[in-house]
């Protein structure tokens, strides 16, 4: 990737729902090989940001751009973005009753890599291996996607999908929330298999603990729809200790200037 074509860049992004502005000028750049963490109080707009990156129809972008591999993706449908290599691990994955995990993932993989590129037998073999890697029971292959899954099982399924679809840039929206300590380790192991010089990652979280497994190079704090502060990995310690109020105050002052 040359300097001139940004890998992933959010520029002055504004988005709203029907009657409410949520994102109010978000700027954030991720280079290949980088892992960024995004924190921020409840309701500050983190999930909205992930949804807008992926193209959720409930939000209207009123200003700004999201550039992925040199292209403004905001005009693309969610599926086209995914086929380019974007991935969102959802905070609340939805269930698709009646569609098995295997069928769903095969359809998704066919869409991402091209119909017929992967032979069914090869696909199932890889899926089994990935499931083993994520310490998931094989029984999940034939279960309906996320239907009756526990919270932790759903999160693990998101990571399984990520491993299957091999994205170039992934956003993980609170994948760590609700995971027990072993699950957290396993999920992190899955994520770290993706991490490499050609992969960018944005990890949204409320807790420091996942950042011990997935070491971010940058940390951003989103407050009221804007990135109020960016820093190195050490910033997380301060957030853990002091919460967000001091950032809000500091950011408020800067805005006032």
């Amino acid at each position: 990737m040359s300097e001139k074509t940004p890998f992933f860049e959010i520029r002055n992004l504004h988005a709203k729902t029907e009657d409410k502005a949520i994102l109010k000028g978000v700027n954030l750049t991720i280079l290949p090989g980088e892992t960024h963490a995004l924190m921020g109080p409840n309701g500050s707009g983190k999930s909205t940001l992930s949804n807008v990156i992926m193209g959720h129809p409930a939000y209207e972008v009123t200003d700004g751009e999201v550039i992925f591999q040199g292209q403004n993706i905001l005009e693309l449908d969610p599926d086209a973005r995914a086929r380019l290599g974007l991935f969102l691990a959802f905070q609340y994955p939805v269930a698709i009753p009646g569609i098995s995990v295997a069928k769903f993932l095969k359809s998704a993989a066919d869409a991402r890599f091209g119909q017929g590129t992967i032979k069914p037998a090869q696909f199932i073999k890889q899926l089994r291996e990935d499931m083993k890697f994520l310490e998931m029971s094989e029984a999940f292959i034939n279960r309906f996607l996320n239907d009756g899954f526990s919270g932790g099982e759903k999160k693990r399924m998101e990571i399984l999908q990520m491993l299957t679809l091999k994205p170039v840039l992934a956003v993980m929206d609170e994948t760590d929330s609700g995971l027990d300590i072993d699950a957290l380790r396993i999920v992190s192991k899955g994520v770290n298999r993706m991490v490499g010089p050609n992969f960018g990652l944005l990890v949204i979280t409320h807790y420091e603990r996942i950042l011990r497994y997935i070491a971010p190079s940058h940390l951003h704090v989103l407050i009221d729809g804007q990135v109020a502060m960016s820093g190195g990995p050490d910033l997380v310690k301060e957030v853990e200790k002091n919460g967000y109020d001091w950032i809000r105050e500091k950011f408020g002052k800067e805005v006032l200037v």
Binding site: M54, D77, F104
Partner: peptide
């Protein structure tokens, strides 16, 4: 809308996503 978005976010176009969801519905 949430189901459609979820399926589409995996690369599956709207028409196929609808079809997949309906198919599951009729399973």
């Amino acid at each position: 809308e949430e189901q459609l978005f979820y399926v589409q976010s995996r690369g599956i176009d709207e028409e196929s996503a609808t079809s997949l969801i309906v198919n599951g519905f009729c399973k």
